[in-house]
């Protein structure tokens, strides 16, 4: 039985704890080094997305998103305790978007990838497991009530059969 408690809590933990490293959207060899760009979430939707650049040797790097009429460009920067360079950008509209990484003053992009942006995830969609948290709770309470009622019923029947 304790398994039930343990596993329920453990599953809850694993569901929540996942730090997302992202999926590679482009990668190429630069000299002898491989440079890879990762994006989170794997299927982007209207709203923000996180980008991580791994393997870049040094020097300033910028990332740009072109999505419909919307253009956004920002520097990829190091974060304490995490490898790689990171940035957060917004996808403004649904449809194709071009993500490019530029190193220094080079005109040619270092990496480039086209991604498809899905419709905006509503707060309801993003939080549905929590919104529906009452259903398993209610299931547990209902099961308990049913078991208690069944026990009461069988006790009464048992008691009644004793009456001569």
């Amino acid at each position: 039985m304790s398994r039930m408690l343990l596993t329920a809590l453990a599953v809850l933990s694993t569901r929540l704890a996942c730090a997302d490293g992202g999926v590679p959207i482009d990668s190429r060899m630069v000299g002898t080094e491989r440079v890879t760009l990762l994006m989170t979430p794997a299927r982007p939707s209207v709203g923000s997305a996180r980008f991580t650049l791994l393997g870049h040797g040094g020097g300033p790097v910028e990332i740009q998103v072109r999505n419909g009429d919307h253009r956004e460009r920002t520097a990829l920067e190091a974060e304490p305790g995490r490898p790689g360079l990171h940035a957060q950008l917004d996808f403004a509209v649904e449809g194709p978007a071009l993500v490019t990484v530029h190193a220094g003053a080079a005109t040619e992009p270092l990496l480039q990838s086209e991604v498809t942006v899905g419709p905006q995830a509503t707060a309801w969609m993003a939080r549905w497991p929590w919104i529906l948290a009452w259903l398993p709770m209610l299931g547990l309470v209902t099961l308990r009530e049913w078991l208690l009622a069944r026990r009461l019923h069988s006790t009464q029947e048992h008691g009644a059969s004793k009456i001569p």
Binding site: R3, T7, A10, V11, T14, R15, D20, A42, R43
Partner: peptide, 23 residues
């Protein structure tokens, strides 16, 4: 590896099956 939900599912499977196995 494509997202946090499948990753969490994978971890939950390992933990669940691990508990059953070691029981």
């Amino acid at each position: 590896l494509t997202g946090s939900v499948p990753h969490a599912l994978e971890h939950a499977c390992f933990l669940w099956s691990g508990i059953l196995f070691w029981w």
